[in-house]
């Protein structure tokens, strides 16, 4: 499903080249629940940005669902992303001038994948699934951090994407809300959605099919949690 080969990413800052990802190879299968664990600045968010096509690699290739992202232009990437990937950002990234419901509907209207007539009911259902059925007309500034994150998740699943990419989705949430979010991801994963999460925190390995450690831009380990647990 996701094939990364010899991926390199470096940034030029004040004349200095910073290597964010070094010779990265990764393969994720359809329906897998994968977590990338690493400290702040290790390159995990960069890797997510590469996979979602938000950023471009310096070299190497990323193939998602058979599509080599290097072949897509910026606007084609946006369209592709809308149809194939749901993104949950660490800081929610909701559109502040739209209500919770409209944020979800907006994502649907951009992609045009869901028939117009079905959108409102479906968006409402997604918001109910994340426990916000009574707050659909609230604006982001009227919601708590956890509620905003749940709106962001409802938006990410709005177009029924094959892959959900989540950057520290529970990083700013209390443990109870975090638990709810994780359960939601598990449910989506059980329905066949590939989940790729990034975190810097300790994780419960049994939740995931694959755990990837990243340090200084290098994927150090890649193993099945059961194997890791046995070690």
């Amino acid at each position: 499903m996701i094939e990364i080969q010899q991926l390199e990413k470096y940034y030029e800052t004040t004349g200095e080249r910073v290597h964010a990802l070094k010779n990265t190879n990764l393969s994720i299968n359809q329906g897998e629940n994968v977590v990338i664990v690493g400290k702040s600045g290790s390159g995990k968010s960069t890797l997510l940005n590469m996979i979602s096509g938000i950023d471009r690699p310096s070299s190497g290739s990323i193939t998602v669902n058979g599509q080599n992202l290097n072949d897509l232009k910026e606007n084609e990437l946006a369209l592709w992303r809308g149809s194939n990937i749901g993104i949950v950002f660490q800081f929610y990234q909701l559109l502040p001038t739209l209500s919770a419901l409209d944020n979800v509907l907006f994502a649907m209207s951009l992609v045009n994948k869901i028939p117009t007539k079905e959108r409102k009911a479906k968006a409402t259902r997604h918001l109910e699934e994340v426990g916000l059925g009574d707050k659909i007309s609230k604006f982001p500034n009227e919601l708590s951090g956890g509620e905003r994150q749940r709106v962001a998740i409802a938006r990410a699943i709005a177009n029924d994407p094959a892959i959900i990419i989540a950057d520290e989705p529970t990083g700013n949430l209390d443990s109870k809300t975090g638990e709810q979010i994780n359960n939601l991801f598990d449910k989506l994963n059980a329905e066949g959605t590939t989940i790729l999460t990034v975190t810097h925190a300790h994780i419960d390995h049994v939740h995931y099919d694959k755990v990837i450690h990243i340090e200084d831009g290098i994927l150090n380990e890649m193993m099945q949690p059961q194997t890791e647990a046995a070690l």
Partner: peptide, 16 residues
């Protein structure tokens, strides 16, 4: 600009 980035991330091409 950041909101434009969000829109792009959730599938909006520049034209839209």
């Amino acid at each position: 600009t950041r909101e434009i980035g969000i829109m792009k991330s959730i599938g909006a091409p520049s034209k839209k």
